[in-house]
Amino acid sequence: MYKTKPLVSETELIALLKSRDKRGFDLLYDNYSKALYGIVLKIVKTEEVAEDVLQDAFVKIWKNVSSYDSSKGTLFTWILNVARNTAIDRIRSQEYKNTAKIQPIDINVGMVDKQSTTETQIEHIGLDKVVSRLKPEHQTIIDYIYFKGFTQTEVAEALNIPLGTVKTRVKSAINHLRELFT
């Protein structure tokens, strides 16, 4: 017999999570794991690392859900940032850098196919359509910072623009994204 998942509002989901109800975690994972995995995979580039980072991110979400503030954004935005920051922390870690140096060449050859899977998952949640509505310079900044895991300083260096310009564009892009989501 096929069981349907109970639908709950974001407010109800947050209440379940904050009350440490396992059903809340199950619903959170079922509804958001694919989208978060796509973002994490785009940053870390390998499925094995992405799976590990996703697990770490969900543990952080579960442990820190009490710090979520709905006045600062949606639950999805908050968990996306937790997952993204966990992935960035991983690629900046010395252990990751050392492991990446000793990977056989054939593992890296298949990465093109894996990236297309990520693109599909990002398209599936509609994020690519929303980002495409931004100005081209804002799209570039969002791509570098949120999908590639660059810091603002790294973006300034990569695009050869002043750090202040990067910061202004990030703030402007995020404000525009907020308008598009509301």
Rank of each mutant, 00 (worst) to 15 (best):
I174C: 08
G24W: 02
A100Y: 14
K22M: 14
I61R: 04
E51K: 13
L177C: 04
K63A: 07
L13G: 01
D56G: 11
T182N: 14
G110E: 15
F58T: 08
I43C: 00
L134A: 09
K34R: 13
Y37F: 15
V112L: 11
D106A: 10
V65H: 01
V40E: 03
S132F: 06
V109G: 04
P6Q: 13
I43V: 02
I105D: 15
G149A: 00
S116H: 13
I105Y: 14
V40L: 01
A156C: 01
E154D: 05
Y29C: 11
F76T: 03
R84N: 06
A158E: 12
V112M: 09
I43G: 00
L36D: 10
W62V: 02
A173E: 06
G149R: 00
G164I: 02
W78R: 01
A57F: 05
Y146E: 09
R20N: 15
Y68G: 02
T46I: 04
G126N: 06
T151E: 06
Y96A: 04
T140H: 08
I91E: 04
L163Y: 13
D30K: 14
S19Y: 08
N160Q: 14
D21V: 08
I43R: 00
G126V: 08
T165N: 07
N81H: 06
M111Y: 15
I174K: 11
K34N: 15
Q115C: 02
L163N: 07
S116M: 11
G24L: 01
N81Y: 06
K72V: 02
N98M: 14
W78T: 02
H124M: 13
E137M: 10
Y68A: 00
T165C: 01
K114G: 08
S132M: 10
N98K: 13
T153Q: 11
F76Q: 06
L36H: 09
A100R: 13
K18W: 04
L75H: 04
W78D: 01
R20L: 07
K171I: 15
K114D: 15
L28C: 06
H124S: 14
Y37S: 04
F147W: 09
K34Y: 13
I122A: 01
E179F: 09
Q103R: 15
D52C: 02
N81A: 06
M111R: 14
F147M: 10
R169E: 11
T74I: 00
V65Q: 01
S9P: 00
L127F: 09
M111G: 12
R84K: 10
I145P: 01
V53N: 08
I43S: 00
E119D: 13
L7D: 12
I61Y: 02
G24N: 01
K63V: 07
N85I: 09
K45W: 05
L127T: 05
A173Q: 05
G110C: 08
V59L: 11
A158K: 15
W78N: 02
N98G: 12
R178A: 10
N85R: 10
D69C: 02
D56E: 15
N108D: 12
L28H: 06
V82I: 12
I79G: 03
Y96G: 02
S70V: 03
I145F: 03
G164N: 10
L127I: 09
L36G: 08
R23V: 07
V8R: 07
K148G: 02
V44E: 00
S93R: 03
Y96R: 04
I61K: 03
E47H: 06
I14M: 02
V65R: 00
L41K: 03
K135Q: 11
